[in-house]
Design a protein around this nucleic acid. Structure first.
Length: 420
RNA sequence: GUGGGUAUAGCGCAGUUGGCUAGCGCGCCAGAUUGUGGCUCUGGAGGUCAUGGGUUCAAUUCCCAUUAUCCACCCCA
């Protein structure tokens, strides 16, 4: 197959046969967000490159090697957004919303782009649903965010026992620095026994040492200092409040001191939504109190999460309603009947019914076969006799029940309504 | 970026001591006395055997490269 008939590497066509899943999950996400007071925001697909360097972090993999960056015709460096938080924060600052009534709650559904090697659940173009709160530096705020996500998972009928909500506190910049120092000191002792990646981590991001999957490196985890022991009193108290909030809402969670977030802007609360059978992280988030100031706004607390829509859809447990099918197919035989069929269909469509008729001039048999294939719930065949008598037989395609009705949109509609 | 698997019709697959017009299932289109679906039967459309080289009288089949794709690592939603 030639390149022109091949979607670019790492992209995914969402075809009619599965698009209802996206519509369902996005619809639920918007509906639930609305009830929690998170208003939707839509930001550009591309932003100034500098925004991501500043927010996501200059040293992260995302910025260093995964961004789709290009110069526009005036030489400005732009980047397809690799995640949603930075854009939302930027827009909140730029619009002044961040200086309006606080807390400010926003949500978004947006495509994101990262130049990574594709694998299962990982695409170069993917969709994030995110929710963000600005101006609320409280455990309750973080609890609410988790509750929102949990609500969505529940509505998607993903059972509690199929995934974990893992939480952790990576502390404030001050106590985290203490911890990182201690962790580095601990690991330096085994430096010569660590894998190559871990050598890198020792310098760049020591907290990553804790989730190395190389068996040999794993042995040092046991006795490594844990972040929760280094949390300062305020951070400790914050985390305790967070946990008791989740408890009071009966939201199940597990504390995992190894959770680290890859983006620079996180502080205090961090969490991940992890599928149990394959360990896929389908959502993550946390608090990032430093971000707004970093981007040039007035120091404002912030917290939020993002979910990977494609990843949620890939969860075998998620339950989606079946795709919709046409309500009625009107088959026509001959010119007069064909034009009447078109007219009836048009009337039904105007009344909110999904109606179909022949547009390629096929035989009645072929029309019926087509009606069956596309899953039409009812069918009507009209020919000269029906045009003459202005009545026709409506057939329930599943039960084969038939009934005669007057040939007009109103009566046809009445005949196919689920309840009469 | 690293490592491994795969690459034949829209989809799922056959196809070796390398050899004649490359097959099967599903799907698609049409027909079975012409105004009716799902079953059955018949017929039909659709393939530069990923691409480019090489070996050979001959390559879908062997070798090399490239590309794509899947999986894992890295990283992350």
């Amino acid at each position: 197959m030639g390149l022109i008939t091949k979607a670019p590497r790492g992209t995914l066509d969402k075809l009619p046969g599965e698009i209802h899943k996206y519509q369902h999950i996005e619809g639920l996400a918007r509906e639930i967000s609305g009830r929690y007071g998170y208003r939707e925001i839509r930001t550009p697909v591309f932003e100034h490159t500098e925004l991501f360097k500043r927010s996501v972090g200059d040293t992260t993999d995302i910025v260093q090697k995964e961004m789709y960056t290009f110069d526009d015709k005036k030489g400005r460096s732009l980047t397809l957004k690799p995640e949603g938080t930075a854009s939302a924060a930027r827009a909140a600052i730029e619009s002044g919303l961040i200086n309006d009534a606080l807390p400010l709650k926003l949500c978004y559904i947006t495509n994101c782009y990262r130049y990574e090697a594709p694998q299962s659940g990982r695409y170069r173009e993917f969709t994030q649903f995110g929710a963000e709160v600005y101006g609320a530096n409280t455990p309750t705020c973080d609890v609410e965010l988790i509750a929102l996500a949990y609500d969505l998972f529940t509505r998607l009928r993903i059972p509690d026992e199929r995934y974990k909500i893992e939480i952790n506190s990576i502390g404030c910049p001050e106590c985290r620095a203490e911890y990182q120092k201690a962790l580095r000191e601990y690991y330096v002792g085994f430096a010569d026994k660590l894998c190559g990646d871990c050598h890198e981590r020792l310098n760049r991001n020591p907290m990553r040492l804790l989730d190395c999957k190389v068996p040999n490196c794993g042995q040092f985890k046991e006795n490594a200092p844990t972040i929760l022991d280094y949390n300062c009193d305020p951070c400790r108290e914050f985390f305790a409040g967070f946990k008791s909030g989740l408890d009071s809402l009966d939201i199940p969670y597990t504390v995992n001191a190894r959770i680290v977030r890859g983006l620079d802007y996180y502080t205090n609360t961090v969490f991940e939504f992890v599928a149990k059978d394959n360990g896929l992280v389908f959502g993550a988030g946390g608090r990032y109190n430093g971000l707004i100031k970093e981007l040039g706004g007035n120091a404002t607390a912030a917290s939020g999460f993002a979910l990977g829509i494609e990843r949620i859809i890939s969860l075998p447990e998620a339950v989606f309603p079946p795709p919709e099918t046409p309500d009625i197919y009107i088959a026509g035989l001959g010119e007069a009947a064909g034009s009447l069929a078109l007219k009836l269909v048009q009337g039904l469509r105007g009344a909110g019914v999904w109606a179909e008729c022949d547009i390629v001039g096929r035989s009645v048999k072929a029309q019926m076969r087509y009606a069956d294939k596309i899953g039409a719930r009812f069918s009507v065949v009209i020919g000269d006799n029906e045009v003459e008598s202005k009545t026709a037989v409506v057939k329930n395609m599943q039960t084969k029940e038939t009934r005669e009705v007057a040939l007009d949109s109103f009566n046809l509609m009445k005949a196919i309504l689920p309840f009469e």
